Computed example of a mutant assay.
Amino acid sequence: MTATDLQTTTAAAAGSSAPLRLGTRASVLARTQSQAVADALTAATGVPVELVLISTEGDRSSASIAQLGATGVFVAAIRRALLDGEVDLAVHSYKDLPTAPEPGISLAAVPAREDPRDALVARDGLTLGELPPGSRIGTGAPRRVAQLRALGLGLEIVPIRGNVDTRLGRVAGSAGGPGDLDAVVLARAGLSRIDRAHLITETLDPIQVLPAPAQGALAVECRSSDARTRELLGRLEDTAVRACVVAERATLATLEAGCSAPVAAYAEIAEGETGPELFLRASVTALDGSDAVRGSLTRPLADAAALGRALAADLLDRGAASLMAVGR
């Protein structure tokens, strides 16, 4: 499709009642969160939205996140479909996006965020501290692996992949089967979105396990040239959430790290002396759990990106780069 054809198609859609086409991965979680965005957009604008399911490299591979290595494995195919005019907008788990901008694509909206904390689903209703040494605990994220090892609880960390229900099914008793794991750690946001929050045995305090940058947030993208769709999507924007995730991802970008690095960052809005402020915490943990650097900073909401860069610079000054290389 040529640029002229794409403009003609977009213009025709603007003057008709044709639904907007939303590109999404096919997993239950991706479809659920994309449908929520579609419903919110229709409620706000009256424009119908239909889902278009797209298979990504990350969906087709059975390799671990660390083995996949390159960022964007869950988004590249969807972005290609967007640029090719096969879909009009796309919804991603924000934490899956590369930190570098994609030419021709705009981040048109960051909607309200789910609880960004990690959650434990364990056999027999146990909490993390109640799991006996030697318990097998599954996770696919190097960040979680590093932080769990750093707690020094004597747990055996088992790498896992698969959708949420596949992971839950490996916990003894959680899905009616024997299971081969004592527990798994997942994002609380994902469990909540697909109505599995009742299985959570403990929501992990960020003091123990700090979340991934942008965890629990969604990113809604469209073509930069599509002014109509950008305007429609802007009605879903949550400015406070965007400020938080901008700070978190600026930390990640400055550290030159991706989803396979043991980097955590979590921003909250707090009341300062002169109004709302961003309170940002971040950490880099050696994959073997042997060492970590942590820090925090506070700045006004308007300085979100600068806040993330400043905190990352502090972590680098204290040895973060060498820690990211440990255990690779």
Rank of each mutant, 00 (worst) to 15 (best):
M1G: 13
T4L: 12
T8V: 15
A13I: 10
L20M: 04
T24H: 05
T24K: 01
T24N: 03
A26D: 02
V28F: 04
L29N: 04
T32A: 12
S34I: 05
Q35D: 13
A40C: 04
L41E: 00
T42H: 09
A44N: 13
L51D: 01
E57F: 07
G58M: 02
G58W: 05
S61Y: 13
S64V: 09
A66Y: 08
Q67N: 02
G72D: 00
V73E: 02
F74E: 03
A77N: 04
I78E: 01
D84G: 05
G85D: 10
V91L: 04
H92T: 02
S93T: 05
K95N: 14
R113V: 13
P116S: 08
L120N: 00
G129H: 13
G134H: 06
R136T: 00
I137K: 00
A141H: 12
A141V: 15
R143I: 09
R144Q: 14
G154W: 13
R161H: 12
V164T: 12
G173P: 01
S174A: 14
G176R: 12
L191P: 02
L191N: 02
R196G: 08
R196H: 07
H198Q: 03
I200L: 09
D205M: 14
P206L: 04
I207K: 11
Q208D: 15
V209A: 02
V209S: 02
L210R: 11
P211S: 12
A214Y: 07
A217S: 15
V220F: 01
E221S: 10
R223V: 11
R223G: 08
D226E: 12
A227V: 15
T229K: 10
L232W: 03
G234Q: 10
R235F: 04
T239Q: 11
A240M: 05
A261G: 01
G272L: 10
T274N: 01
P276Y: 14
E277Q: 14
F279P: 03
R281E: 09
T285S: 03
D291V: 10
V293D: 06
R294D: 05
S296N: 09
T298F: 08
L301Y: 06
L301C: 11
A304Y: 01
A305R: 07
R309Y: 03
A313T: 13
D314P: 06
L316A: 13
D317F: 15
R318D: 15
G319Q: 07
